[in-house]
Amino acid sequence: MSESCGAVSLSQSQSLPGVAGGSAMDMDPVEFTLRKRLPRKLPRRRNDVYVNMKTDFRAQLARCQKLLDSAGPGPREICIHGLGLAISRAINIALQLQACSQGALQLAANTSTVELVDDLEPEDPDEGETLTRTRNNSAIHIKVFYPQ
C-alpha cells in the first residue's frame, strides 16, 4: 500500500546513516550510494491504517473516522500503524479520534522495532560487491476501539 511505503521512505530519511546494523562497517559516503529498500510488507486487514507523512493529515483522519463509523462484521476497532517519523502523526490521529468521540473511544498502544534493509552500492562498480546493512527503526501500533 502506498501509505506504508511513503511513511517509510520519509521516516528512513530521518534516521542517521551511521547506525549500522548487521555488517559492522563504516560507510564512506564518497564510495557508496545508499539505496533503501522498502520495509517488509505485512499482511493487511481492512481495518489496518498505515500512516504516512505525505498524505494530508485531515484526509487520513477522515479515513480513520470513516472506518470506525462503518458498520462491519466484528468489533468496531481500527489499528493505526506508524513508522519512524510518522509515529507522532499516528499518535496525533488516534488522540484526535478520541477527542472527537467525546471519550467513547479507547486507545491501546504498542511499540515495536522494525528491521530495515539498506543496499550500499559502490560508486566504482568494478571495485566491490554491493553490501547490505540492516538497521532498526521504531514503530507504533495503536488500537482504537469502542469498549464493550
Binding site: 566504482d124 562498480p125 568494478d126 571495485e127 566491490g128 560487491e129 554491493t130
Partner: peptide, 18 residues
C-alpha cells in the same frame, strides 16, 4: 564506460550472481 554505471566488469555481475 564506467562513468555511466556498472559495466561488464562490475564485481557483482562478474561473479554471475547479478
Amino acid at each position: 564506460s564506467k562513468e555511466t554505471g556498472p559495466t561488464f566488469a562490475a564485481a557483482m555481475c562478474l561473479s554471475g550472481r547479478r
